[in-house]
Amino acid sequence: MAVGRAQRRLNGALAIVVRTFGELLITVGIVILLFVVYTLYVTDLINEQKQGDANDTLERSWADPVAVQPAPPVTPELGTGFTRLYIPHFGTDYNFVVVEGVGQSQLAVGPGHYPGTALPGQPGNVGIAGHRIGTGAPFNDLDKLNSCDAVILETETDFFVYRVMPMAGQVAGWDRIRQQDPRCARVPSLRGPGEPGGGPYGRTVGRRIVTPDRVDAVAPVPYRPDDPLPKAEQVALVTLTTCNPEYGNSHRLIVHGVLVRQVPKQQAPDYQALLSRIGMTL
């Protein structure tokens, strides 16, 4: 009998150990699921709040009568929103306030403008980074942009319409593609005939996947850190960057667009007016 009781007590202790271990495993599983919910949804809610605040501040600064005269472009302060980004291909309601800076606290507000790169409409390269996962995920579908899709930047005075450049496989036959698709009519391939390697913009195509050390992706002439052109001869480009693969950080996804049109707000007071003016419908 004594042996039996000891045996039962041992079984009881074992049961407690096994049960506690099981409970811990279940707890860890629930915590991981909660973390997924946080990353994919809660960060979006936090971002929505911050975007809303940045949008209000931007609207107020644009409505300020002191600033009615188009001020000379000044470098925006770190963390302040200064332009609005629209990508019609991602839906007519797609718009984000772009803030200055690509640090984590700035990217938590919205897409971030690389400090020192061109401002909207200027010659050179407007570099903008954005999250692909969580935090509003402005660049979630960046890989789905095709050549000639519009990337629009709104400033206080103008809309600047950029279009995605020809993809690597389209460069050779671009003149033919350009004639077939009216959206591409104003999109140059930026390759001069007979220039070695396609000229200064020979490496600039619609979409590229590069290693994270390619800071020259946002150089005035992309992938040319040697800066081969004087400012006046630089083409006005926009460059969007995000992580690649979608949940990884081994590479960066880069999309290049070229400025095809500038529409002053006197001609198109809002986004809807702009879209009808450039032949896109809401």
């Binding site: 690509v102 990217l107 992580c243 990884g248």
Partner: peptide, 23 residues
């Protein structure tokens, strides 16, 4: 849950690889 959502996850999330979006 509040401790996780407001303290632990905000600390952990920036360490995830897909937050590296700039070159």
């Amino acid at each position: 849950v509040a401790l996780l959502m407001f303290a632990v996850f905000p600390w952990l999330e920036p360490k995830l690889p897909f937050n590296d979006v700039s070159v």
